[in-house]
Design a binder for these strands. Structure first.
Lengths: 158, 158
DNA sequence: CTAAGATAGTCTCATCTGCAACCATCTAAA
DNA sequence: TTTAGATGGTTGCAGATGAGACTATCTTAG
């Protein structure tokens, strides 16, 4: 009789782990700064690429639906954490960037999140962490997760 | 200036990877058998523990909200894949188990899912897979994921 | 034995998110 | 050009899900 042990089934473990890790991090960006996940992803993307970028790019890069990003951007603009400017080259799209206020929040938040990440990974040795990142990378690659974001990145990278 | 590369940030990578892997698997249980994720989790739990167990136990074990499990059980009962019997010892709870039909579906589904899992992990060598499972386990343990499900398990195991 | 609190399960409500239609704009081909 | 199709972004709608109230039942302390 075929049987499946959920606790050893990698897809299930990944889901549960991701949910748990998200919950641990959301303490920082949600409770402390009132950001939800899509909003945090927008800030994270804008913060990493210091130049302005489009909503579409953020959607591709974070693998989040464009309508979700649209709503997140609206909320962030209302809180004056993000602003957008028309793009003269293509008037359909807007260039997004953080405001001074947004960047201040970002710079306060990032170290907290990195600390959380380190806490979560503190059960692994340095070597194990490298190994884990490597293995994640291989799986991502075989699922085309890398390729896609790099393609999007290359496309957008001016 | 603090900065965070989303693509190297483990929590983000885990989320994205879990979502992608789920999507790959849902082709099997969703498109082919019309099960949604909570329903599949109920079947998976019932299938693994051959004895009947409560909805609460499934919720604990899969870390899914009890109302979600409740709805999934209702749907599965309507499709006659699962049945429940009153528990004489505690009339608040019901003992759930798969029907013959449910078990037939389960036994058809499991090999497909295991094959998918193997496909996803096929980019790793046998050693790497062991290593990956080991590292996942360490993180789960440090996040108390193991402890919790084992505690729930121990509590329920009569 | 009774009352207070815990627990199993259901249900309602608010929220979130994906889908798809939509508008504006751009691009390419006739 | 003009027109058809692609693309960026927004919005209405529907489905899914978590929080929390609620009922019924169990447990424990007095």
């Amino acid at each position: 009789m075929p049987k499946l042990d959920l606790l050893r089934f990698v897809p299930f473990r990944l889901n549960r782990l991701a949910a748990e890790v998200s919950a641990a991090l959301s303490v920082e960006y949600q409770e402390r700064y009132g950001l939800d996940i899509p909003e945090w992803r927008v800030l994270a993307t804008l913060g990493f690429r210091q130049d302005a970028c489009s909503a579409q790019y953020i959607a591709h890069c974070t693998r989040t639906h464009k309508s979700t990003i649209s709503r997140a951007v609206t909320a962030l603009m209302q809180r004056q954490l993000v602003e957008r400017v028309a793009n003269a080259d293509d008037r359909r799209e807007f260039r997004l960037r953080m405001t001074r206020k947004g960047r201040a929040l970002y710079e306060e938040l990032i170290p907290r999140l990195l600390r959380r990440e380190q806490q979560i990974l503190s059960c692994l040795s340095a070597g194990e962490r490298r190994e884990f990142a490597l293995l994640l990378g291989k799986i991502e690659q075989s699922l085309d997760l890398i390729q896609t974001s790099e393609a999007a990145s290359a496309k957008e990278a001016y």
